[in-house]
Write a protein that binds this DNA or RNA. Sequence first.
DNA 1: GTACTTGTTGAACG
DNA 2: TCGTTCAACAAGTA
Length: 280
Amino acid sequence: MPELPEVETIKGQLNKKIRDKKIKTVEIKLAKMLAGVTVDNFKKIVEGRKIKSVERRAKLLIINLSNNYSLAIHLKMTGQLLFFKNIQDWEAYKNKSAVHLIYYFENGSLLVHTDVRQFGYVKLIKTAELEALFRKESFGPEPLAHDFTLKKFKNLLIQKPRAKIKPLLMDQTFLAGMGNIYSQEVCWAAKIFPTRSVQGLTPQEIRALYVNLIKILCQAVSARGSSVDNYLDTEGQPGEYVSRLKVYGREGAKCYRCDGTIKKMTLGGRGTYYCPKCQI
DNA sequence: GTACTTGTTGAACG
DNA sequence: TCGTTCAACAAGTA
């Protein structure tokens, strides 16, 4: 499930693979993937344009085109963007299910957008309107931005004294990009029980949350994300961080840190794993 | 057939 | 009006 590290991985790979490439044609197999634009208009605006750059905001992948339009792509749970350097490689690819969009580049390479559950979307908007879109979503700060300091994190927390820490970490208006998996990994690493309220946290615990938040996200980015469910990077490779997850999906298994047994609860409607012994 | 998965949205609440 | 919480929804898998 693409959260910040997965989208960041795709962003980095696409900047290497498709920047400055010219889109010759787009094949649209499932029109409902396009948000707020008709198939004809989408083709008219996108075809013949060059890729200027690829960015990320929260879990949105932003592809900037040469004509001052941008694609804002959300992969939701099961979206994939797969790059192939030529049509033969694509023909040889084993899993061709759930293919909804194909971007063909002038040099023969292609980018394939798949999504088994069809939850994701591609929004076509003017580049100048991106900021307005982000404001409308009221995204919180980017945790990996250089100016995201401990002090800034503390100031954010003070605003939400009664919130439970784990659901708060995955609230996109509080902090952008964290999802269900990494938010519980952060709580485990900081030895904090997921239902703890912000006002009860000690300064040391807040520091532990901050340090582990940054650490886990950075490590997950370098491991090209976690492949829970069906996430793949643009080369069709699974993310390696999945083997380093400490609590997610480990119900009934032994805690890696103490002799406790990992338990699961529902918190804010989401499955949440924790160690009842060392997370306090 | 049923339960379960997550990110987002909109309704309902106080 | 606002902040917060919760159910619903998307579509498929076990």
